[in-house]
Amino acid sequence: MKLDLHVLGPILALVVLVLVGAAMNSNFLSAANVTNVLSRSAFIGIIAVGMTFVITAGGLDLSVGSMAAFIAGLMIMVMNGLLPTMGPGWPLVGVGVGAALLAGLLAGFLNGFLVTTMRIEAFIVTLGTMGIYRSLVTWLADGGTLSLDFGMRTVIRPIYYNGILGISWPIIVFALVAIAGETIMRRGAFGRHAAAVGSNDQVARYSSVDVNRVRMLTYVFLGLLVGIATIMYVPRLGSASSSTGVLWELEAIAAVIIGGTMLKGGFGRVWGTVIGVLILSLIDNILNLTDGVSPYLNGAIQGVIIILAVILQRERKAEG
């Protein structure tokens, strides 16, 4: 059995990073640090799982960062607006959560509609909606920050900071989303169809696959997951501004690519995306914990890793 670098590459990289981190700082493997890293990667991670499906089906979504900021702003405004009538408490949180999920669903549907029914390139569509959501959240916040009422912040805090058995909710939700995503991608008809559409949409069409429906669903799922990620995010800071979620779309896409999903579509794996997310957050964490390299070089190191990942993918192609 030949060792497949394409499969092992991301895992090896992750293992090396963990070893390097542990060697450089004794706090690295402490429960507090691990929880911190995982919780913070959950936002990008949940989004990246959805992004894996979009990219596998041959699409792309640049709008997710702005979408998250917009949904966060909306969620805060809905809760603040209803606070006088409903009072602080879990029913109001439920309304906020519902609003976030609905907004995510609609935003995903809009992207999907423009890509499928209107037949506009995904890059163009989501570049457009990216600008729209970013501008909307800036406008809603009037250039500043939308802050959740202080009483509500206390109510909502546990969504980010609490959990069960010492594992925080964001980590649990991320794990559930990842497991569900991996199962659907690997064993679900939808995952197979998404790969077929991304591989060759004509073949998919001639094989009686409803190409537009598959594409649409990938965007709707991604929108929904952006909503879920936002629900985890709002309790952490209790605010949203024009700088919320900046560059999340690129981090999510980078994680997907590092994980071995093909950018041009046709093949995707969710477990790889999860590893990609962890690699990106570990680099950030290690640079923050150690003095040797400036954390300002974070972006440069991540960039090198993304390019390396793509080179590894290509070499596998050339052998085949």
């Binding site: 197979r192 790969a195 077929a196 591989s199 060759n200 004509q202 073949v203 069409r205 001639y206 093949f267």
Partner: peptide, 12 residues
């Protein structure tokens, strides 16, 4: 171009 996914296996 329309019949088979050339990069996939026979089963898929």
């Amino acid at each position: 171009a329309r019949g088979l996914l050339l990069a996939k296996g026979m089963r898929e």
